[in-house]
């Protein structure tokens, strides 16, 4: 029923490369609990409730000036003044900045920028939010309730796509815009939508935020991204059946790869230190990074290995 099963079947080689992890032990669960509990005192005050006029949602403060990440369906349009409730019940105001309706990412600025706001760090390594990783969700489901406080859910990442994460941290109305954290206490997702099953909880990943940080801060409505955009290398590659390595077949003229000196015939071993399993692995790794990001490619030709740094470009329109 869901297209995702079909795409998974398209890459049996990739599946085979990922042997199942051993099941979780009681000790591992204990360590996850300890990590979450250590992170909560710092994470909780960064979570806010946002009153939208006809409803209630959540958000997370990510710098001391009071910049807040939330969902586009919460912000709706740039320049809206909204009331924001802090963990202790204090009410302040914020103004929506830019948003991306395609991916549901949005920014809001608390109006008082002089206060040293409690805040959470954003994970800049989107690629690390992989299926199987443990994570935790915070938010104000059903609206702000001082006696209850922020509501916690602990779970695992089920699926990662170019712009989103699916987890089994169960969400409900009012959670929209709230943060998903990794076990380092960094924000890796923003609660976006649910489907009816308890495992169908969707979060915006950090990719759309990182890609368009400047545009969003300058209150632009971004409509151009669909799934599949992102960074761009400008090379064609495929697995060489003899060497089983990912080999560069062609480097496009004027592309980021050409500027970095990548040559046809070289094999790509790793991207930012992460060994590459196949073609889709490479294209996903590139897509999950923003245009403008630098990536290190480990290349091999003959017996020689070398590393180049490539500044990712925007995917040319006709190919996107």
């Amino acid at each position: 029923m869901r297209p995702i099963f079909l795409t998974a079947l398209l890459f049996p080689a990739l599946l085979a490369a990922d042997l199942p992890d051993p099941p979780v032990t009681l000790e591992r669960l204990q360590a996850i609990q300890d990590a979450v509990r250590d992170l909560l005192p710092a994470a909780r005050p960064a979570v806010v409730a946002i009153l939208t006029g006809d409803g209630t949602a959540s958000g997370v403060i990510i710098d001391k000036s009071g910049l807040v990440l939330t969902a586009a369906h919460v912000a709706e349009t740039p320049g809206r003044e909204l009331r924001v409730v802090l963990e202790d019940g204090r009410r302040v105001t914020g103004t929506t900045l830019g948003l991306d309706k395609t991916t549901d990412a949005a920014l809001l600025q608390l109006n008082d920028t002089k206060r040293d706001w409690p805040h959470a760090a954003v994970s800049r390594r989107v690629i690390e939010a992989q299926p199987g990783e443990w994570c935790f969700a915070l938010g104000h489901p059903g609206g702000f309730d001082k006696a209850r406080g922020v509501v916690l859910r602990v779970g695992r990442i089920i699926r990662q796509t170019a712009n989103s994460l699916q987890t089994d941290c169960v969400l409900m109305g009012g959670d929209s815009g709230g943060p998903l954290f990794n076990l380092k206490g960094e924000v890796i997702g923003i609660h976006s939508q649910i489907w009816e099953k308890r495992d169908e909880n969707m979060h915006v990943s950090m990719a759309p935020f990182l890609r368009a940080w400047d545009e969003m801060k300058s209150s632009l409505v971004i409509r151009t991204w669909g799934t599949g955009s992102g960074g761009y290398l400008g090379l064609a590659a495929d697995v060489n059946p003899d060497t089983e390595l990912l080999e560069v077949l062609e480097v496009l003229a004027g592309s980021p790869s050409e500027k970095a000196g990548v040559l046809p015939g070289e094999s790509i071993l790793a991207l930012d230190g992460e060994p590459l399993g196949g073609l889709s692995h490479l294209s996903n790794a590139v897509k999950l990074r923003a245009a403008g990001d630098q990536v290190r490619l480990r290349l091999k030709k003959g017996g020689q290995e070398r590393e180049v740094s490539v500044t990712l470009g925007h995917r040319p329109k006709e190919e996107g």
Binding site: F11, P131, G132, Q160, A237, N284
Partner: peptide, 23 residues
């Protein structure tokens, strides 16, 4: 091929199987 692959799958690791989820 590389463009098709990119469009067809946005995934890295395969989805976490139901038996490995929290419950």
């Amino acid at each position: 091929l590389i463009l098709l692959a990119a469009g067809a799958s946005a995934e890295m690791r395969p989805s976490l199987q139901p038996e490995d989820r929290k419950n």
